[in-house]
């Protein structure tokens, strides 16, 4: 697939929910479970990162070098990433649960529901 015009992939949680609700998205249970586990892990990491950002933003003015090593690195990473793509983490926290829900709905439908198209992908 050629690189997107945008630097980041767009979120499409609503689309996935629609596809699952209409029965157009059918995912093999094993692959669905793997994807759901990955999304849940990502969501938990993002929530942790957002907590760090909020704590830092709401605490009294302080210097990064006064923080413990571990926290300092996380704060610097979080602040920098938030400046590069403001609101991206918040958006992810809203969107990723939609993907998880869609995959749960799309998981394990009857195999007979699935079409066999050998359309060669050009992606």
């Amino acid at each position: 697939m050629p690189p997107d015009a945008e630097s980041s992939a767009p979120f499409a949680g609503e689309l996935f929910l629609t596809l699952a609700a209409e029965g157009r998205l059918v995912v093999d249970p094993v692959r669905a479970d793997q994807a759901i586990a990955g999304l849940e892990r990502t969501l938990s990491l993002i929530r942790a990162r957002l907590r760090i950002l909020r704590i830092w933003q709401h605490s009294p003015p302080q210097r990064v070098d006064e923080l413990p090593d571990e926290l300092a690195n996380d704060v610097v990473d979080a602040m920098f990433a938030d400046q590069l793509a403001p609101g991206r983490l918040e958006q992810a926290v809203t969107e990723l649960p939609k993907y998880i829900e869609a995959l749960r709905r799309a998981r394990g439908r009857r195999p007979g529901d699935r079409a066999e198209i050998d359309g060669q992908s050009i992606l």
Partner: peptide, 16 residues
Amino acid sequence: GVMPPNLVGELLKHIE
């Protein structure tokens, strides 16, 4: 209208 496995695979890549 059910998507074939190769297209589903591309959607899963999008998620990754």
